[in-house]
Design a protein around this nucleic acid. Sequence first.
DNA 1: TATTGTTATACTCTATAACTATA
DNA 2: TATAGTTATAGAGTATAACAATA
Lengths: 142, 142
Amino acid sequence: MKPEISDFLPYLLNQAAELVSRDFQPFYKDRYGMLRTEWRVLFHLGHHGEMTAKQICEQASIHKTKVSRAVTALEKKRFLRRETLEDDRRFEALSLTPAGKAAFDSLAVEAAAFDASLEDMVGQDDFEALKRMLNHLIAKKS
Amino acid sequence: MKPEISDFLPYLLNQAAELVSRDFQPFYKDRYGMLRTEWRVLFHLGHHGEMTAKQICEQASIHKTKVSRAVTALEKKRFLRRETLEDDRRFEALSLTPAGKAAFDSLAVEAAAFDASLEDMVGQDDFEALKRMLNHLIAKKS
DNA sequence: TATTGTTATACTCTATAACTATA
DNA sequence: TATAGTTATAGAGTATAACAATA
């Protein structure tokens, strides 16, 4: 018995990720002109406060070239400012401007609501289990 | 309490999908030079036999432009042949050549083994639950 | 006019190597 | 020599409009 495509986990993950991403994309794209990596970097800075690019790379599992470009784009949008660290001038402290904070606050609320709508879709218990499994899978594969 | 990124389902889905896809990609790419959509189209034709492009679009939820390009690429690799339907000359019956069938047979085995390795990773019960939830989510979002 | 499939085009995302500035 | 971050480039994936051929 050959497997159907709906039994192949890589396909399911990709399809689900794509559909969900496409639904959330308008929130950061249409209003703020951000790309996905920019939204993620903004998310991390909004959540953790001042960080270096390297810290964002590590915490978010994003390659340094992507972070570098996202930081440049967010800076151009006046959502982020950088300050070279005097201890070690290779590092820059990245932080959100008031405009960046405002965007983050608004998007964080919308993200939470979006996540809640997904929770409604699959049910509360399943939703927690789903997140747990995905985190487990990601940890194993990273 | 602001949400961590590991609590945001779109992020988790995308990260898991990317890591898993990257692991499976070598099977169809390195040996057969296929792209992801080509592998999916091959999968469908191998599983269901003769189909039209429209049927593949519907069953696999792939846009017609992607299927069209994948079909062209698979034809160039001599994995697929087309035959215009005389009933309605807008349609073409697509089917795998012997070389295409051989590639499918080999890849189907490897895909099943890969899927099984993911099952080992998350545990059998969770694995079934995970697939069920993803299928549910996909159905709701499509 | 509607449908199947193709082509053109632009944008988004990923991956890697080479580079700079600093340590 | 090593590390933080940048730039260049190619490849892969996605989205949409316009089109040709057939019905």
